[in-house]
Design a protein around this nucleic acid. Structure first.
Lengths: 296, 296
DNA sequence: ATCAAACCATGAAGGAAATGCATAATGCTG
DNA sequence: CAGCATTATGCATTTCCTTCATGGTTTGAT
């Protein structure tokens, strides 16, 4: 079996010109190399070099294998450094999954510094999973989940990295603008725009309307945040968004925000598998996510 | 040490989906693979796969090594078949050296069939050596020597592949044309054209003139056979060439040939190192050289 | 020529490492 | 929860590698 050792020996012998010198450089005995190559030569019935007085001369077969060795051995050596990097958490791939549409916007502020700090990490993002985000994380479909809705699980931890508040977004001339804060009953005859998911996955329902036994006059799913705001600005209805996200657009549109009840506090959480906690760049991402992001 | 075995295992496991199946395919025990990979994982502190219920799933490091394996292992396997070809004498390089200028012409008739019969052999030709052809052969500068002058040597054999006769070439209107055969004394007042080497390497001297104590009126070295024949045809002198070589030009020039004394028989010989005699394509060249060439 | 030095080949012996065997542990599946 | 399939692990064994010791070959100097 043509083995890595054989190629390494060949390279060393070619470099140092003699078996003895090559053996010294490899911390082996001259005999070891002699035996190893003799066995290879026997196995394949091919001579690799011939004694040419005091120095050795590669045969055709020897030169062929030497070229192979010069190609392959460095590749293997490089692979070992890559493994070392992976082991130390300096290198790898980080596949980030997002469940909430606004999370995507937030994430864009974090990836820049991260990519600079961890140049050997291959960063990828996914927004569509076969099932939900947590399942994707557990199935190793992604390595990190960005979500505002953490869960208690044995093999996954969530750490909050960014606090924000969900607020009602109203047209500037809306009657409700007069109120300091919005109550569930206020939405009774409003059209509510949200991202297109079922109400049981929307905080405005689960934490505000449903506990109070109320529902909006209409509930319409909209894909794009921009479109939602346009619709609100046009007086077609109201919506619920993170405060900082609205703030980014507030000066360009005639819209106003009001707190939801006593205030609907949320936090963006980063979910990671516990088994990955000793990977440096995973911890690194959490660190940067918590430090670097500044509210716009 | 990341070894070929590890890569082979990785490939097999990826292909068969389980360690047990991979072990079967490799004629190893499941335990052997388990041990081998466990050791590699310990050495580099990297997991290569994780149990995913009934099947295994490669980690990032595992996938990285798997890609490496898919590239490198086939290369090594190919190298082994190349070695086998070399061992069986089906593949290799054949560097042919020539000492006599006419040999080059002869050789051209042989290489075509040889290249067809031995497609994996890399054929090269050399006409200039650091010393003489035999030394080049012994120093592995060439693998075969084409020469009309064999020598008895312990490590080299010569086999004749083509018999020919050296003849005097005369202008058609030369006085000596009247003779059946030429005697040494006949050249006393002739200009003799030969290839530009010293007389002791020319048969016309060593085997004809010198033993008889004669020499031509003038001895002029000419590089090109064509030019030699032109000079003879023009009546400027005479020359000595293989009969078959003259026959190629005889119908286009006013020249005539006559035997030298009792006939100067020669043979083109192929010299090869004894150590190379079990290389098939070397024997193959000799065979084709003897069979294929037909006198023009 | 002779001799010393450098170098490689080879056989025997010892030891480390890979492999196999038996068994425990794990995780699906019905 | 039982049963099946598969992997992990401890221990015994064998294989293979390495070293040691030695002899042979080439080179270069005396």
């Amino acid at each position: 079996m043509l083995d890595r050792q054989h190629l390494t020996i060949l390279r060393s012998v070619a470099r140092y010109g003699s078996v003895t010198a090559a053996a010294g450089a490899m911390n082996l005995s001259q005999s070891a190399i002699s035996h190893a190559i003799a066995k290879l030569e026997d196995r394949h019935r091919v001579k690799l070099w011939r004694r040419k007085g005091r120095r050795l001369e590669m045969t055709q077969a020897g030169q062929y294998l030497l070229e192979l060795a010069e190609r392959i051995v460095p590749e293997l050596e490089h692979a070992e450094t890559v493994l070392a990097d992976m082991a130390k958490g300096r290198r790898g791939s980080l596949r980030i999954g997002m469940e909430c549409h606004p999370c995507e916007q937030w994430l864009m502020h974090v990836v820049g510094p991260f990519l600079q700090a961890w140049p050997a990490v291959d960063l990828q993002m996914k927004t569509a999973f076969r099932f939900d985000g947590i399942a994707a994380l557990q199935a190793h479909e992604i390595d990190m989940l960005v979500t505002p809705d953490p869960m208690a699980l044995p093999d996954v931890t969530f750490t909050p990295v960014f606090d924000y508040e969900l607020v009602i977004v109203l047209p500037a001339d809306h009657p409700l603008v007069g109120r300091d804060r919005i109550q569930p009953d206020d939405l009774r005859d409003q059209t509510l725009y949200t991202v297109p998911v079922t109400p049981n996955r929307l905080d405005i329902f689960t934490r505000f309307l449903t506990p109070a036994g109320r529902r909006p006059a209409a509930h319409v799913g909209i894909e794009s945040v921009d479109l939602m705001l346009q619709l609100v600005a046009a007086g077609r209805g109201v919506t619920v968004l993170p405060d900082w996200l609205v703030a980014l657009q507030a000066d360009r549109l005639p819209i106003v925000t009001r707190p939801i009840g006593g205030g609907l506090q949320k936090a963006i959480n980063l979910g990671t598998r516990i088994e990955d906690h000793d990977i440096d760049y995973v911890a690194g991402f959490r660190l940067i996510a918590g430090q670097e992001f500044k509210r716009p």
